[in-house]
Amino acid sequence: MKTLRLIQLALKYHWDAHKSNPANLIAGVLGMVVNNIIVLWGLWAMLFDGKPDGQALTIYFLSLNAMITIAWGSICYFIGGVRSLGEYIEEGTLEPMLATPRNPLVLVGISQSITPALGDILQGLCNLVALFFLAPADMVFRCILFTFSSGVAFLGLFILTGSIPFFVRRGNALAQLLLECNLSLSFYPTGKIFTDKGRFLLFLTPAAVTGVLPMQAIENGHWSTAFIAVVGAMCFFGFSILIFNLGLKKYQTSSYVSARA
């Protein structure tokens, strides 16, 4: 309960900070919305419009986009500090967070709120509204439900990639690369591209739990697929926490002051 109160206070504090510079806030959010709309339209026009099975693929792509943008955007806006976990470890910023009785991951999470992520959430919600008109209601409901599953998986991914600097010197650059790779594998309709070996390899990446499996569950509505997607996301999240704790035990921090200097 106390943790929730802390998160709520942090959000209020971040929102006040964003509000104090309205030009920046509007530019950041609108910039992201414009960016997302262009990307969405571009991929749709290039891949699905006027193509055989275009209608079904459009619904698939809208659902995928809604799920990914809301899940990614929510993590980045509400607990955006986890995106900088690797940087904190490298710079020594993590150390002051270890000196309190609170969970360090919570403190890392609430340390930042990324403004443009609001644009992602807004875009995803618009997609959901569009889906209400284009897709069956149960599919839209599943899309909302599996956004949570994808969000948990993305949170796990941020923690897992952010923990790389515990084990690899200057590992943050590698972490960002892996994050970008996974985002691309989740965002593009990879579930419809790869078959056989390619699909098997895709299931070995975190994109399986952030995008492919939840999307499969949204599309076919089978309980078994839904179960695999949810359990997969939770196991991945648990695994990420495990790796973080393992890294924390062998963490040798650099001096925060000297790193900053």
Binding site: G31, G42, P116
Partner: peptide
Amino acid sequence: NYFLLPFGKIFLVLGGVWG
């Protein structure tokens, strides 16, 4: 900075970079 992202994306999509 905030204009760079949408500007880049406009050229990315309208320029046929993806395909």
